[in-house]
Write a protein that binds this DNA or RNA. Structure first.
Lengths: 120, 120
DNA sequence: AAATTTATTGAGAATAATTCTTGATATTGG
DNA sequence: CCAATATCAAGAATTATTCTCAATAAATTT
């Protein structure tokens, strides 16, 4: 854990709005004015590799980063562009609804929902 | 439907191995030797827009294209790199396992599973 | 059928996000 | 303390995709 990685991680925990690498870059510059975007990418990669952060990819846009380590999905609001975490119902998994291939060992799950929030 | 779009679509139906735009480009050149990669992208975009084909994005790699219109997921085999469709169990939907946001109207669902096939 | 409008193709340039390269700078184990 | 190793950071390079625009083709009007 280097100071740069600390700060990137701290930022992700502080504002859990699924920022892009560039968003993180902008935010950490307040505390680390000399950090470079390449370093932010390096830090994010290190955090992802060590399992502290998840990388969220959606529709060819830039990757977003998420410090929520539970298995969960992401709801992308078509109106505001925001992303929110979507939890599994207690005790439920994807295997309950999907016909997984015979002998498949799942290492990682990615669920992206696109839609909009309609007020009652 | 132009000849180019026909041919791109035919190719997707013929070999359902989730090819990338470049894969499609290579394949259709047998029949349309003067087609360009840009046109393949145009055709794929048109097919996706008109709902004949789904675009599959996974881990920042190039997009793959799939003519299976049912709501389904994709299993990515970490060993061979292949992708296979994963069906829902009859009558089941994601809403059965996920706690969707209040008032969310889902337009589109994307499920990607990464793992490997272990022989019995 | 000719003329006009509209859409599509395709070649190459442009873009965006990310990765790579490399020298400088830290950090760590012996 | 010092060698070995890892990380940082600046800019170049890469990759997948999109854009631009002139040429062509198709459809519609006259």
């Amino acid at each position: 854990m280097t100071p740069q990685r600390q700060e990137v991680y701290r930022m992700l925990l502080e504002k859990r709005d699924h920022p892009s690498a560039n968003d993180v870059f902008m935010r950490v510059r307040g505390r680390l004015p000399y950090i470079s975007l390449a370093t932010v990418y390096n830090c994010l990669e290190a955090l992802v590799e060590h399992g502290l952060v998840k990388q969220v990819n959606f529709e060819r846009g830039s990757s977003r980063y998420c410090p929520n380590l539970e298995v969960h999905g992401h709801f992308h609001d078509a109106n505001c562009g925001g992303i929110v975490d979507v939890k599994f119902k207690p005790g439920m998994t994807l295997a309950d609804v999907l016909e997984l291939p015979e002998g498949a060992v799942i290492h990682d799950v990615e669920i992206n929902l696109r839609g909009q929030l309609v007020l009652a």
